[in-house]
Amino acid sequence: MLTCENEKELALRARNMRCHIIRMLEAAGSGHTGGSLSIVEIMALLYFKHMNIRPQEPRWPDRDRFVLSKGHAAPGLYAALCEAGFFPEDELKTLRKLGTRLQGHPDCKKVPGIDMSTGSLGQGLSAANGMALGLRLSGKAARVYTTLGDGESEEGQIWEAAMTAVHYKLDNLTAFLDHNGLQIDGDVTKVKSMLNPGARFQAFGWNVLYADGHNLRQLDAAIELAKQTKGVPTMIIAKTIKGKGVSFAEDKAEWHGVAPKADEAVQAIEEIMAGGCK
């Protein structure tokens, strides 16, 4: 259960992360705003409550792993890692610039705290499966978490991986589907009839849970339940809003791959500060 104090701290973290996302994207002048903002609560719960990690020892062998399968949401991951102390906040403004560690898509060779390089959609769930198998084989109790996009789930490889996770009974794996309803060319139901992803994963044998992806209590309860589930992997279908927290970007496909300009960033930060922390 999430205590009131927990919830307050996490909400504060989420608010800070949203501000980091806006500021780093504005400084970069390009990047993925919508899909970074939609995963913030998921990341806050993972990095500040559930994941067993050591920012001072990023390669600690017993750590929980995280794979950002929808790698274009890198700013959401960088915001969490920076808040958690994996690297200094100052570095955020180097995002996407020549020579930076903070590449346009996560690079595990460069950034402490990143377990897998991603960016090509559809590959992360398979990698997470491999990590879960590896942890089990090494007799480690650590868990693997991964976040997928709903558009990303159009990749056939996601369903190859979905079968694999069930086949190997990977109950040390918890996946989130960031179900924001949008991809680049528009609504996920219009581009490819990506209807009811939960039922699809269920049909593949997953333990499927549903949560409001911006509700910390609901997400927390789902993650707890996943930890207790034995013999099957868990998929948490997180209903989210792309661009969450910034009125002009919310639920807009156009905000998938553009960064806020200076005046937009000012407005965005104002809105986040006003609404982010209850």
Binding site: G151, E152, E154, Q183, D185, K192, M194
Partner: peptide
């Protein structure tokens, strides 16, 4: 494959919607 705005096939999809197929991210 869900990149019609970037690859610029968008023009064709608007002009000839019946002859355009978005395969999704696949």
């Amino acid at each position: 494959a869900d990149l019609s705005h970037a690859t610029m096939t968008l023009n064709f999809s608007r002009q000839y919607p019946k002859r355009f197929f978005n395969a999704g991210i696949a």
